[in-house]
């Protein structure tokens, strides 16, 4: 199969219902073409993105994880994303100290109108991760 020749990374994107999920929708509506690497997991608020689930994604085989939400100040739940931001800083430091390449974990604020931003974000991360190859935490035989 032609598609198989090139390795396609698997990227888990946690999106909040109100902004970044809408951003991914808007990317689709604008037909901004993206590599087929991302699997979106919807939560109500980026504040719900438990590092536990980020760990789970990596340990199960994710080559990168995207934590996304509303722009600061735009949170549907007042300030969930501020909490996300602080928690993410600890998470990011942990993953880097552990030896994960920084390119594999990202935090981004994407509004429901920023379809193009979502698409270029996916493009950028996918290109970077392709260069790196599979994640060192990916179990053998999994993709």
């Amino acid at each position: 199969m032609a598609d198989r020749k090139e390795w396609e990374p698997k990227i888990v994107a946690f999106c909040c219902n109100w902004c970044s999920y809408g951003g991914a929708d808007t990317a689709g509506m604008g037909r901004f073409q993206q590599p087929a690497s991302v699997r979106v997991v919807r939560v109500m608020c980026s504040g719900r993105i438990d590092p536990l689930h980020v760990f789970n994604a990596f340990l199960e085989g994710a080559d990168a994880v995207l934590v996304t939400g509303c722009h600061l100040g735009d949170c549907h739940y007042v300030n969930g994303n501020y909490k996300t931001e602080v928690r993410y800083q600890f998470l990011e430091e942990l993953m880097i100290e552990m030896g994960l390449e920084p390119e594999r974990l990202h935090l981004s604020w994407i509004s429901a109108s920023e379809g193009e931003k979502f698409a270029s974000f996916v493009n950028k991360v996918t290109t970077e991760v392709k260069k790196l190859g599979p994640s060192p935490l990916k179990p053998e035989g999994v993709n």
Binding site: P51, F55, N56, L59, L94, M98, P136, L137
Partner: peptide, 10 residues
């Protein structure tokens, strides 16, 4: 059978 223990990561 993860490469790193979930227990320790959490």
């Amino acid at each position: 059978d993860y490469k790193m223990s979930m227990y320790h990561m959490v």
